[in-house]
Deep mutational scan, measured.
Amino acid sequence: KTVKFDGLQFDFDNPEKALKFALEVAKQKGAEVHIHGDEIKIE
C-alpha cells in the first residue's frame, strides 16, 4: 500500500501498518483518510 500526503509518498509492504500510519498522520493533521485500491490519501 502507498500512503500519500503533502506531496510525499510512503510505501508499505504491510497494509495494516500503512493504514495505522495514515490514521495517525490524519489525526495529527486534522485530515481525513481516503482509500483508493492500493493507495491511501490523507486530505
Score class of each variant (00 low, 15 high):
residue 38 D to A: 09
residue 18 A to Q: 01
residue 34 H to W: 10
residue 28 Q to N: 09
residue 31 A to G: 11
residue 18 A to T: 03
residue 7 G to I: 05
residue 10 F to D: 02
residue 9 Q to S: 12
residue 25 V to F: 08
residue 6 D to I: 01
residue 19 L to V: 01
residue 15 P to M: 14
residue 29 K to S: 11
residue 19 L to D: 08
residue 24 E to P: 00
residue 7 G to F: 06
residue 32 E to Q: 13
residue 36 H to P: 05
residue 34 H to L: 10
residue 43 E to G: 12
residue 18 A to F: 02
residue 20 K to C: 15
residue 8 L to I: 06
residue 38 D to S: 11
residue 35 I to Y: 07
residue 10 F to M: 05
residue 15 P to Y: 14
residue 31 A to M: 14
residue 4 K to F: 13
residue 39 E to Q: 08
residue 10 F to S: 02
residue 9 Q to D: 06
residue 10 F to T: 02
residue 18 A to P: 00
residue 19 L to M: 10
residue 12 F to M: 02
residue 42 I to H: 03
residue 41 K to S: 13
residue 27 K to Y: 09
residue 42 I to D: 02
residue 2 T to I: 11
residue 41 K to D: 06
residue 37 G to A: 08
residue 17 K to S: 13
residue 15 P to D: 10
residue 8 L to A: 04
residue 40 I to G: 01
residue 15 P to W: 15
residue 7 G to W: 06
residue 9 Q to K: 09
residue 37 G to I: 08
residue 37 G to S: 07
residue 41 K to L: 15
residue 2 T to R: 07
residue 27 K to E: 10
residue 14 N to G: 04
residue 23 L to E: 15
residue 30 G to C: 15
residue 17 K to E: 15
residue 24 E to N: 00
residue 33 V to S: 01
residue 36 H to D: 13
residue 17 K to T: 13
residue 43 E to A: 09
residue 28 Q to E: 10
residue 39 E to S: 08
residue 42 I to E: 02
residue 21 F to W: 08
residue 33 V to L: 11
residue 37 G to T: 05
residue 20 K to D: 15
residue 17 K to H: 12
residue 11 D to M: 12
residue 32 E to P: 05
residue 12 F to D: 03
residue 7 G to E: 06
residue 42 I to T: 02
residue 6 D to Q: 06
residue 11 D to V: 12
residue 10 F to G: 03
residue 13 D to V: 06
residue 13 D to H: 01
residue 21 F to Y: 09
residue 8 L to K: 08
residue 22 A to T: 00
residue 37 G to M: 08
residue 43 E to P: 05
residue 26 A to K: 00
residue 41 K to H: 15
residue 31 A to P: 01
residue 43 E to K: 08
residue 26 A to W: 00
residue 4 K to R: 11
residue 18 A to C: 13
residue 3 V to S: 03
residue 18 A to N: 10
residue 28 Q to T: 09
residue 39 E to D: 07
residue 22 A to P: 14
residue 28 Q to P: 01
residue 22 A to M: 04
residue 24 E to Y: 01
residue 41 K to Y: 15
residue 8 L to V: 07
residue 31 A to V: 09
residue 3 V to P: 01
residue 13 D to M: 07
residue 4 K to W: 14
residue 35 I to L: 09
residue 35 I to Q: 05
residue 41 K to N: 12
residue 16 E to D: 10
residue 4 K to I: 13
residue 6 D to K: 04
residue 16 E to K: 07
residue 35 I to H: 05
residue 27 K to F: 10
residue 23 L to N: 13
residue 38 D to K: 09
residue 33 V to F: 02
residue 34 H to I: 12
residue 9 Q to W: 08
residue 16 E to V: 06
residue 17 K to Q: 13
residue 36 H to S: 11
residue 19 L to R: 03
residue 22 A to S: 00
residue 36 H to F: 12
residue 33 V to D: 05
residue 12 F to G: 02
residue 21 F to I: 14
residue 1 K to E: 04
residue 15 P to K: 07
residue 17 K to V: 12
residue 9 Q to G: 05
residue 5 F to I: 08
residue 29 K to W: 13
residue 7 G to A: 04
residue 7 G to Y: 05
residue 40 I to K: 01
residue 12 F to V: 01
residue 28 Q to D: 08
residue 25 V to Y: 06
residue 23 L to G: 12
residue 29 K to N: 11
residue 3 V to I: 05
residue 9 Q to P: 01
residue 40 I to H: 03
residue 42 I to G: 02
residue 18 A to V: 01
residue 36 H to G: 06
residue 21 F to E: 15
residue 41 K to M: 14
residue 11 D to E: 12
residue 29 K to M: 14
residue 36 H to W: 11
residue 19 L to N: 03
residue 6 D to V: 00
residue 9 Q to F: 09
residue 41 K to T: 14
residue 22 A to Q: 05
residue 1 K to M: 14
residue 10 F to C: 14
residue 18 A to D: 12
residue 3 V to F: 00
residue 27 K to L: 11
residue 2 T to E: 04
residue 14 N to R: 00
residue 5 F to P: 03
residue 24 E to F: 00
residue 43 E to N: 08
residue 23 L to R: 05
residue 8 L to M: 11
residue 22 A to V: 01
residue 12 F to I: 03
residue 25 V to D: 06
residue 41 K to G: 06
residue 14 N to S: 13
residue 1 K to H: 11
residue 32 E to V: 14
residue 30 G to K: 06
residue 7 G to M: 03
residue 23 L to A: 12
residue 8 L to P: 01
residue 1 K to I: 14
residue 41 K to F: 15
residue 21 F to N: 14
residue 12 F to K: 00
residue 43 E to Y: 12
residue 17 K to L: 14
residue 23 L to M: 12
residue 7 G to Q: 04
residue 3 V to H: 03
residue 26 A to E: 04
residue 20 K to W: 08
residue 31 A to I: 08
residue 38 D to T: 11
residue 32 E to N: 11
residue 24 E to C: 15
residue 36 H to L: 11
residue 36 H to M: 13
residue 13 D to K: 02
residue 11 D to T: 12
residue 36 H to A: 09
residue 3 V to C: 03
residue 9 Q to L: 09
residue 33 V to Y: 01
residue 22 A to C: 14
residue 25 V to G: 00
residue 1 K to G: 05
residue 43 E to L: 13
residue 17 K to Y: 11
residue 23 L to P: 12
residue 10 F to Y: 10
residue 26 A to Q: 02
residue 32 E to M: 13
residue 36 H to Q: 11
residue 43 E to R: 09
residue 31 A to R: 09
residue 7 G to C: 14
residue 15 P to L: 14
residue 12 F to W: 02
residue 24 E to M: 02
residue 18 A to L: 06
residue 35 I to F: 09
residue 30 G to W: 07
residue 19 L to Q: 01
residue 41 K to P: 02
residue 20 K to S: 07
residue 31 A to D: 04
residue 27 K to I: 11
residue 4 K to N: 07
residue 29 K to R: 12
residue 25 V to R: 00
residue 2 T to F: 06
residue 7 G to T: 05
residue 21 F to Q: 14
residue 6 D to S: 02
residue 27 K to T: 08
residue 9 Q to T: 13
residue 15 P to V: 12
residue 3 V to Q: 02
residue 8 L to N: 07
residue 6 D to R: 01
residue 34 H to D: 04
residue 10 F to K: 03
residue 11 D to I: 13
residue 31 A to H: 08
residue 30 G to H: 07
residue 23 L to D: 14
residue 42 I to W: 03
residue 19 L to P: 15
residue 38 D to V: 09
residue 33 V to E: 02
residue 16 E to Y: 05
residue 3 V to M: 00
residue 36 H to Y: 13
residue 31 A to N: 02
residue 4 K to M: 12
residue 15 P to S: 12
residue 16 E to L: 08
residue 18 A to H: 03
residue 35 I to P: 03
residue 31 A to K: 09
residue 29 K to L: 14
residue 7 G to V: 04
residue 6 D to W: 08
residue 39 E to M: 11
residue 28 Q to V: 09
residue 1 K to T: 14
residue 42 I to Y: 01
residue 25 V to T: 05
residue 23 L to V: 11
residue 13 D to S: 06
residue 28 Q to W: 03
residue 19 L to Y: 08
residue 22 A to H: 02
residue 5 F to R: 01
residue 6 D to C: 15
residue 8 L to Y: 09
residue 12 F to S: 04
residue 9 Q to Y: 08
residue 24 E to Q: 06
residue 13 D to A: 07
residue 24 E to I: 04
residue 14 N to D: 14
residue 14 N to V: 05
residue 32 E to W: 13
residue 12 F to C: 13
residue 7 G to P: 03
residue 1 K to L: 13
residue 38 D to N: 13
residue 42 I to P: 00
residue 2 T to P: 02
residue 2 T to L: 07
residue 19 L to A: 00
residue 22 A to D: 10
residue 5 F to V: 10
residue 15 P to I: 14
residue 30 G to R: 06
residue 29 K to D: 06
residue 12 F to R: 00
residue 31 A to L: 13
residue 42 I to N: 03
residue 26 A to D: 02
residue 36 H to R: 09
residue 1 K to D: 01
residue 32 E to D: 10
residue 27 K to W: 06
residue 2 T to S: 09
residue 20 K to I: 10
residue 22 A to K: 00
residue 23 L to Y: 13
residue 19 L to K: 03
residue 12 F to T: 02
residue 11 D to P: 08
residue 14 N to W: 02
residue 38 D to P: 05
residue 7 G to H: 05
residue 4 K to S: 10
residue 33 V to R: 00
residue 10 F to E: 02
residue 14 N to A: 06
residue 20 K to L: 11
residue 3 V to L: 00
residue 30 G to S: 06
residue 27 K to A: 12
residue 39 E to K: 04
residue 22 A to Y: 06
residue 4 K to H: 11
residue 34 H to G: 05
residue 4 K to T: 12
residue 26 A to S: 04
residue 6 D to H: 07
residue 38 D to C: 15
residue 39 E to A: 07
residue 2 T to V: 11
residue 16 E to Q: 07
residue 11 D to G: 06
residue 13 D to W: 06
residue 31 A to S: 07
residue 41 K to W: 15
residue 40 I to Y: 06
residue 43 E to H: 10
residue 7 G to N: 07
residue 16 E to F: 04
residue 29 K to C: 15
residue 17 K to N: 12
residue 13 D to C: 14
residue 40 I to F: 05
residue 41 K to I: 15
residue 4 K to P: 04
residue 33 V to C: 14
residue 25 V to A: 05
residue 15 P to A: 13
residue 39 E to W: 09
residue 9 Q to R: 10
residue 31 A to F: 12
residue 5 F to M: 07
residue 26 A to L: 02
residue 31 A to T: 07
residue 25 V to P: 00
residue 41 K to E: 10
residue 40 I to W: 02
residue 12 F to P: 02
residue 42 I to Q: 02
residue 34 H to K: 10
residue 3 V to Y: 00
residue 37 G to Y: 07
residue 29 K to Q: 10
residue 3 V to W: 00
residue 40 I to Q: 02
residue 42 I to M: 05
residue 32 E to G: 10
residue 17 K to C: 15
residue 35 I to D: 04
residue 25 V to I: 13
residue 35 I to S: 03
residue 21 F to L: 13
residue 1 K to S: 11
residue 25 V to S: 00
residue 36 H to E: 11
residue 12 F to E: 01
residue 2 T to N: 05
residue 5 F to T: 02
residue 4 K to G: 06
residue 6 D to F: 04
residue 5 F to E: 03
residue 22 A to R: 00
residue 14 N to P: 00
residue 24 E to H: 00
residue 34 H to Y: 11
residue 26 A to H: 00
residue 27 K to C: 15
residue 25 V to M: 12
residue 25 V to N: 00
residue 26 A to P: 00
residue 14 N to F: 04
residue 21 F to M: 13
residue 28 Q to F: 04
residue 29 K to E: 08
residue 33 V to W: 02
residue 1 K to V: 14
residue 4 K to A: 07
